[in-house]
């Protein structure tokens, strides 16, 4: 692990979250100052039926809806299972924990910390895919199989630093 790597933590609720709850959670998370990057993981919600006799047909799903986080709109392509955060320093994790304690009143959750949950530096595969001039902020955020990039949410991460970018990406977990 490089010394420059930022601390990470992962919010794991006991249930898969609906888009409404995800929206509420992400708005709270982005309200915590010092969160650099966010990744939402969960089982995929395909836009079209992927297998079987109905393959190729539209797949209407109430969980695949557009949510709004700090003014940025994006469509949920997964049902939220975990939310991984990369933060500026350890004190932000404590703030995230306090925020989660207040937010998760109906379902229990776990805040995992002390290890890495997403890539923090480019690998050989990233080099092959994105080239030598890839923005390091998107490393570990984007599902390499998907064409769409991360969502950029412009919010101040630290009051003294002014405007910064916060990326939210969606990543699919494969079907087993």
């Amino acid at each position: 692990m490089p010394e420059s790597a930022f601390p990470q933590c992962r919010i794991v609720p006991l249930r898969l979250l609906s888009p409404q709850t995800t929206e509420g959670l992400l708005n709270r998370v982005t309200g915590v100052s010092g969160v650099r990057r966010i990744v939402i993981n969960g089982p995929g919600l395909p836009a079209i039926v992927p297998y079987g006799p109905a393959r190729g047909q539209a797949n209407p799903n109430t969980n695949r809806r557009t949510i709004q986080v700090c003014g940025a709109e994006f469509e949920m392509k997964v049902q939220t299972g975990t939310v991984t955060l990369e933060v500026e320093d350890e004190s932000v994790i404590t703030a995230v924990q306090e925020m989660c304690d207040a937010f998760f009143t109906k379902i229990p959750y776990t805040l995992q910390k002390g290890r890495r949950f997403m890539k923090s530096s480019p690998t050989l595969v990233d080099y092959a895919k994105y080239g030598p001039k890839a923005n390091e902020l998107i490393i570990g955020l984007v599902d390499p199989r998907k064409k769409d990039g991360p969502v950029i949410i412009p919010i101040p991460t630290r009051q003294e630093e002014g405007e910064d970018c916060q990326g939210i990406s969606r990543q699919n977990i494969h079907q087993i």
């Binding site: 609906s18 039926v49 379902i107 079907q175």
Partner: peptide
């Protein structure tokens, strides 16, 4: 579920 059956080992949804 005849096809796309994933769900057995996943956490339940909020509802």
């Amino acid at each position: 579920r005849g096809a796309t059956v994933h769900g057995h080992s996943l956490r339940l949804a909020e509802d």
